[in-house]
Design a protein around this nucleic acid. Sequence first.
DNA 1: TCTTTTGTTTGCGCTAAGGCAAATGCCTCG
DNA 2: CGAGGCATTTGCCTTAGCGCAAACAAAAGA
Lengths: 234, 234
Amino acid sequence: MASLDRSLIAGLSVFEGIAAADLDRIISQARSIRIARDQPVFEQEQEAHSFFLLLDGHVRVMKSTPDGHEVTVRYISPGELMGIASALGRTTYPANAVAAVDCVVLAWPSHLWPTFATSFPSFSANTYKVIGSRLQDAHMRVIEMSTEQVGQRVAHALLKLVKQSGKKTEEGILIDFPISRQDLAEMTGTTLHTVSRLLSAWEDQGLVKSGRQRVVVVEPHHLLVIAEGRAGKS
Amino acid sequence: MASLDRSLIAGLSVFEGIAAADLDRIISQARSIRIARDQPVFEQEQEAHSFFLLLDGHVRVMKSTPDGHEVTVRYISPGELMGIASALGRTTYPANAVAAVDCVVLAWPSHLWPTFATSFPSFSANTYKVIGSRLQDAHMRVIEMSTEQVGQRVAHALLKLVKQSGKKTEEGILIDFPISRQDLAEMTGTTLHTVSRLLSAWEDQGLVKSGRQRVVVVEPHHLLVIAEGRAGKS
DNA sequence: TCTTTTGTTTGCGCTAAGGCAAATGCCTCG
DNA sequence: CGAGGCATTTGCCTTAGCGCAAACAAAAGA
C-alpha cells in the first residue's frame, strides 16, 4: 500500500471514528488490486474469499436468474464497500460484480472479518450501517417496481446515478461511466427499446442529452418532477 | 418471563450456539408483550426503542410511500426477529409492522443491542445472518418484479407463504392467518382484481381453494410450475 | 332478524409497454 | 481506410393487466 492512498482513504465514511493507528492496521492488511474494464471483481455463487473497498472506478453489481435474465442491483462508486458477504455470515457472493471502467480496489481476505469486527467496533458499525442502507435501498426498489411506471423508474435511476456519479460539465451533469440503454433497462426492469424511446423523448424536451453509452442530465429538476409521478402527460 | 417459554425459545435458530446461561441472561432482559390483531408492533419513522422476537402469531411488515401506496415487505412467523433496526445503526423503524392475528412477542430495549453484540457473539452473528437473508430476499423480490409476470409473482408469493406458515389440512395446505386478495396484491405489486381473477382461475383448475381472507393451496407442485414460468398458457 | 360493512367476483374497455423487425450511425480493429 | 460489429432509433402490432363499475356474498353489529 503506497502511503499516498492513506490520506485519501482516511476521509471515507466507512472509516469514520477510527483511530489513525487502527486505520493503518486495517489498511496494511489489504491488497490493492487493479481491475480492467469488463473484468469481474467477484462472481455469484463463488466462494467469498475477500471483501472489497472500491478506490477508483465504477463497478456494476448484478444478479442473474436461472432463466437467463440479468438484473442490475446497483453501481458502486469510489469509497464504497462491496462483496461484504462475510459480514452477513455468507460464504458465497450473492451477485456478480464487474468493473464498468478500469478500477482500483482494496481487498481483504474474508477470514479477517471476525477479527476486524471485534478489534475495530467503529469499522463494523459503519459496515452494518452500509448494509442497513442497502437493505433500505432494496426495499425502495421493490416499492418503485410495484407502484411506479417505467418513465418514473428510469427517471429515478438517472437521478440516482447523477447523485452517485454525476460530473458537472458545460452541457449538464454527466454520468461519468459508460452506461448503455440496456444497462438502464436492467436497472429499471424494462427493455432497452423503452429506455431508448424515453431518452429520445426527453432529449426532444431538452431534459437530457445522450449518446452511445453516455447520458448527460440537463434538467435534473424537471426529471425529478417526472420521477415523482405527476408530470403533465403531454 | 415464565419459564415455560424457555424451552420453546432455546430451539430457535436465532439462539443457535448460545450457552444456556447466556440465553437466560438474554431472555431475562426481555419483556413479553401481547399484541391484539390489527394493532401495530412498531411504526415507520418512529424511534426504534425496541427490537422484537415473535413468539406466537403472524406479523405483517409493510412500507407506505409518500403518495399513499402500501407495499407489504414480508410476513413474520413465530421464531423470527423483527424491528432489528438497531443492529444496523438505524434510530427509526424503516417500516410498519402490524399483528395479522393476536400475537405474543418478546421485546428488548434497543440500547441493549451493543452489549448483546459484544457479550454474545453467536447471537449477533445469527442476527446478521438473518439480515443477510432478508437482503437476499429483497433482491429476489426486485428480480421477480423485474422479470416475472403477475401470475408467476402471485404463485411465488403463495408458495412462500405456504412454506412459512402452511398448515396441513384435509383440503390441502392452509395459509394459517387471514390474508385478503388485497394483501396478496400488495405483496406482488398488482391489484386485488387481478389477484382475484388469478385465484378464481386456479380454483377452477383445482390448484387452490380460497374464500374470504383464506387460501388453501391444493397443488403446490403445479403452482410451482406456474411460478417458474413455463406453464402451458391454456 | 335485518342492516351495514367489508371482502370478493366479474365484465368491459383502455393503454402502457413489450415484441418484432428493419434501418441507421458510431466505434474499433484489421 | 474499409468492414464488421455494437449501440441505438423508430415504426407497427400485440397484449397483459389495470381502472372503472356493478353485482354479490359473508361477516359483524344493532
